[in-house]
Design a protein around this nucleic acid. Structure first.
Length: 464
RNA sequence: GGCGACGUACCCAAGUGGUAAGGGAGCGGUCUGCAAAACCGCCAUUCGCCAGUUCGACCCUGGCCGUCGCCUCCA
């Protein structure tokens, strides 16, 4: 039985969908004003894993992950660079999509953009005004917090507490300091769309409510995102959606932990941002996934190069199994309770760290079984299960040979040259000229190539 | 100030009211021309500190110390 932690109730609950065997899942995507960093990477890796596990469990999942392509930060960046806002949003949307693909994440069923949902957003706002939850004010439209009794139920904040720090700034047209903008009147030179309130653009929170409704309906099973979105973003989404639809917005709210650098939050001002593309150039995509999934998704991660390298070594150990064990000739469920234990871990609020422990135990068992001819078939059967379960975490999607040879390495490696040296070394070894053989190995080591001899011959890989 | 999270071996990291998964590193061994990989063995009497509840707590309660996050844009 799958149990999940729900931020809304702050407790673990049995997972029950609105419609049997179907899951409607919405994940807040990025605001595309810069390249994605590893924090984005973690978030989308985590929900990719959850998507895969739900699918493994037999659910038909409709996964929606939006792109916020109109926002203050985008406009600011466009102004700084003297280009139109769409140039910024298009550039970084493409960059983001490229990163997601390179990470090997399953594409969402729909990846809606704010700028193509304007009609739905306007309708949504009109509904809120009609129902008395929003008001127009000189070209802006605000959501009215005093009219919203349950406001604060997700973040567990009381409106009285929030008011202490909030105030209305000059130029704002709010009735209450906590009211937030649904529609923002366009300033001169700003990108804008026509609306019943004049030219303007949508506020950040309303777009997610509108996109979720358009693609998944009024009530959804899972709404997820980084834990920083709990307040105000998700709190506001709940307020809008439940006021407009008069139905529960999302049953389960998942929030993943942050990626910190040296125990500090990544931020531009601290200059400690770790760019996802840069990381992908240094490590195999699956090593990054492996690293992220070796933590519980709700825990913070203190990222370090050392830990990342360690993860890469761990994944190497797993891939070595894929390389060395022949596939089972027929599909048989191997002995042992590995599948059960893997599911038990994942059923426990997607405990991928625990599930990876099971995977490592399988590595040891497979290696044991493959040492003897009489148990080689069993090793193959277990390897098949190993690959299947690893696949649920998004791992083992690469060809093992290529994994070891095409991995990111310092500089370019001339594979032909390597093969040539290996052949030469094999010849030297045949002639028992071990001095020459070791000399060649040293040469290869200098090229970051590890040579391994076995009864079947010599293989090589790039040192991880 | 309000809300919240965390503190487990050298490092990373799961975890449970009944006595600590897994990985990395290290050490010893098997194998190997040498190595690598793999396998076998060793590696926390102890889970920030103190008190309480309990037959029994690392896991429950309270206090303290430390680290961090949200409350303004943020995955």
């Amino acid at each position: 039985m799958l149990k999940v932690y729900n931020t809304l109730t702050r407790s673990q609950e049995e997972f029950k969908t609105i419609e049997p065997h179907k899951v409607r899942m919405y994940v807040c995507g990025p605001t595309v004003y810069d390249h994605a960093h590893i924090g984005h990477g973690r978030t989308y890796i985590v929900y990719d894993c959850i998507l895969r596990y739900l699918t493994y469990k037999g659910y038909e999942v409709k996964y929606v992950r939006n792109i916020t392509d109109i926002d203050d930060k985008i406009i600011k960046r466009a102004n700084d660079e003297g280009v139109v806002f769409s140039e910024i949003s298009e550039t970084y949307t493409a960059s983001y999509n490229e990163d997601m693909a390179n990470l090997g994440l399953l594409p969402p069923a729909v990846s809606p953009q704010a700028t193509t949902t304007i009609k739905g957003i306007i309708q949504f706002i009109e509904t809120l005004i009609q129902k008395g939850h929003a008001y127009a004010s000189d070209g802006d439209v605000y959501f009215s917090i005093p009219a919203c009794k349950e406001y604060g139920k997700l973040s567990r904040r009381r409106t009285e507490d929030l008011k202490v720090g909030a105030r209305v700034f000059p130029g704002e047209k709010k009735k209450d300091p906590l009211d937030f903008a649904l529609w923002k009147k366009a300033k001169p030179e700003e990108p804008s769309w026509d609306s019943p309130w004049g030219k303007g653009r949508p506020g950040w929170h309303i777009e997610c409510s509108a996109m979720a409704k358009e693609h998944l309906g009024e009530s959804i099973d899972i709404h997820a995102g980084g834990q920083d979105l709990i307040f105000p973003h998700h709190e506001n989404e709940i307020a809008q959606s439940e006021a407009a639809n008069e139905a529960q917005f999302a049953t389960y709210w998942f929030h993943n932990g942050f990626v910190n650098i040296n125990k500090e939050k990544m931020s531009k001002s601290l200059g400690n941002m770790v760019n996802l593309k840069k990381l992908l150039s240094k490590f195999h995509a699956e090593a990054i996934k492996f690293y992220m999934l070796s933590f519980h998704y709700r825990s913070p991660i203190d990222f370090s190069d050392g830990a990342m390298e360690e993860a890469a070594r761990g994944l190497d150990r797993m891939y070595r199994v894929l390389l060395s064990v022949p596939p089972s000739p027929e599909k048989v469920e191997p002995e042992g309770s590995f599948r059960e234990r893997f599911e038990e871990a994942m059923d426990d609020d997607f405990n991928s760290a625990k599930a990876m422990g099971v995977l490592f135990e399988m590595v040891k068992e497979i290696n044991r079984l493959q040492r003897k001819k009489e148990t080689l078939a069993q090793a193959g059967a277990m390897k098949d299960l190993f690959v299947e379960l690893g696949g649920v975490l998004g791992l083992f999607q690469a060809n093992p040979e290529e994994y070891f040879k095409n991995r990111p390495a310092e500089g370019d490696l001339d594979a032909t040259k390597v093969e040539q040296l290996i052949a030469e070394r094999a010849e030297a070894r045949r002639e028992k000229n071990f001095d020459r053989a070791d000399q060649i190995r040293d040469e290869l080591t200098a090229m970051n190539v590890v040579v391994e001899d076995s009864p079947e011959g010599t293989s090589w890989r790039i040192k991880g």
